[in-house]
Amino acid sequence: MSTPATTIFSPETAARFDRLVTLYPVRRSALIPMLLYAQDEVGYISDEVVKEVAQRIGITELDVRNVLSYYSMLRTKPAGKYNIQVCTNISCMLRGGYEILEHCKQRLGIGHKEVTPDGQFSLEEVECIGACCWAPAIQVNYDFYDELTPEKMDAVLEEYKTGRGKETR
């Protein structure tokens, strides 16, 4: 349970983690946010991330892996720079969520949980993202796009291809 002498994270993220563990009655409450922010920076939960997070919280690496395997947003392999998450749950399904998913598969040439060869995009079919009344909806990393059509979806992909897409972190 300590701040490591050397860190794999950027100074900003390391500072965020130093603060996070002090916010709660127990340090461990910082674990899930810490894993998510670590993933945002590293791209996935690598062995090094597990090691440092375990040390910062003061729990074993096994404890970290136990938690890690539970949460669907946490991944142990890299995704694309832009992870396209298409909701196909009921409200989106009724308004064309599967059509959007199919469209993305064709446009990107990849399937569920696959990454394009240049590492720019990955695709994921996801469960309800809380945008039911504005269906069909997707997220690109943390940014929402709603009331989509295949044409609007193309425009979203184009924005990210040309580096103009939103990037909420």
Partner: peptide, 24 residues
């Protein structure tokens, strides 16, 4: 606090587990 993807965590006791840094 932020979760990391789990419907089950919306159940109140699982929510507490998650906030305590555990599986929900």
């Amino acid at each position: 606090q932020t979760g990391a993807g789990a419907y089950e965590v919306g159940e109140e006791s699982a929510l507490m587990e998650s906030l305590e840094g555990k599986r929900g």
